[in-house]
């Protein structure tokens, strides 16, 4: 009796601690969904193959593309800005890398050029936003179409093959059991982002800038530089995501990455990042990205027709935002 009570209060304390985390809500929802999916998979191993190696591989391979970008989008959103051009950056960086490599440039140079392109696009976006004071939503909407246009122009609207060989595969896409290297990249980037955001003074300045830009400026923070920095970090991460994804499919399509910008924002918002800035967490964005793919995966395993996916994702976004808002006010 006493023991059950103790265990009970232990569980309660754990629940309270998790709930108190900045990303507590999404963590609880995420764990709940995993428990249900794993339980169903154990109960009906033949019909619901959630735990099969091939399914886990699909998950670990799909999550990083969006997840890595979401890490950057999260930082930028916390500082109070948006970037709708990440899908185009993703495509252009991939295209530049493939074109350069196919033209005989050393692989490492091609990769660095791709990253540099992302940083450059982010820098231009950021510069225009902080200099003009026009909302970044509008500036990067223009930027999204502009760079997509460049991609179509450079690629002549056709695919570009990319076969860098086993070395690059080993670094970005090899499998270690069901887990793939690109997932480890995602985890590593998330950990770095966490230290940066929660333990570095620049992270503190990111929260301050998004939380109250006038107060941040009055406290001596160079808010323009903080925003520029975040645009550039995001550009680099969008490029990296493009590089990994291109290495996996050995091909650059001129429309690749379309829609990623909104999915990444959705992942962050599901994870509790505020649209107006100032609030958000790395774990939340991480789980937000993972959750989107888990739901997609579960629907596929249930052989639900494709339109269910959009329907569910739409519902999740609305529910998550409303729930976060209600719980925050409490």
């Amino acid at each position: 009796m006493g023991e059950t009570n103790a265990r009970h209060s232990g569980a309660r304390a754990l629940f309270n601690r998790v709930h108190g985390l900045k990303s507590g809500n999404i963590l609880i929802v995420f764990v709940a969904i995993q428990v249900i999916a794993i339980g169903a998979s154990l109960a009906f191993p033949q019909d619901f193959r959630y735990l099969s190696t091939s399914n886990l591989q699909v998950l670990f391979r799909s999550i990083p593309t969006l997840g890595i970008i979401a890490m950057g989008v999260n930082l930028l959103m916390i500082s109070g800005e948006f970037d709708l051009s990440v899908g185009s950056t993703f495509a252009l960086a991939s295209l530049v890398m493939a074109k350069l490599f196919n033209a005989g440039t050393p692989l490492i140079v091609a990769i660095l050029a791709a990253i540099a392109i992302g940083i450059m696009i982010g820098g231009v976006n950021g510069y225009i936003v902080v200099k003009s004071n026009v909302p970044s939503f509008i500036i990067t909407l223009g930027s999204m179409w502009f760079w997509r246009g460049i991609v179509l122009l450079v690629s002549q609207a056709s695919n570009e093959a990319f076969n860098p060989g086993p070395g690059m595969d080993a670094v970005f896409t090899a499998s270690i059991g069901p887990v793939q290297v690109q997932f480890l990249w995602f985890v590593a980037i998330a950990i770095i982002c966490w230290f940066f955001l929660e333990r570095h003074k620049l992270g503190n300045h990111i929260f301050a800038t998004g939380g109250n830009v006038n107060a941040a400026r009055a406290l001596g923070i160079n808010v323009k530089r903080i925003k520029m920095m975040n645009f550039m970090i995001l550009g680099a991460l969008a490029s990296l995501s493009g590089i990994i994804s291109t290495t996996r499919v050995n091909n650059v399509s001129p429309i690749q990455g379309e829609g990623l910008e909104l999915q990444a924002i959705a992942a962050c918002v599901i994870g509790g990042t505020a649209l107006m800035g100032g609030r958000g967490s790395v774990l939340g964005a991480f789980l937000g990205a993972a959750l989107l793919f888990t739901v997609q995966d579960v629907l596929l395993l249930l052989r639900a027709p494709g339109y269910y996916l959009r329907l569910f994702v739409g519902l999740i976004i609305i529910l998550a935002v409303v729930l976060n808002e209600i719980l925050r006010k409490k």
């Binding site: 230290f195 333990r199 570095h200 003074k201 620049l202 503190n204 300045h205 929260f207 301050a208 939380g211 109250n212 107060a215 941040a216 406290l219 001596g220 923070i221 505020a274 100032g278 609030r279």
Partner: peptide, 23 residues
């Protein structure tokens, strides 16, 4: 800054850091 705690507000912009800018 409403979304930050008291301590982070007090030190915001003038954080006490160890090496390399870590808090």
């Amino acid at each position: 800054i409403d979304c930050m705690d008291i301590m982070r507000n007090i030190f915001c912009g003038r954080e006490t850091t160890t090496s390399m800018g870590f808090l």
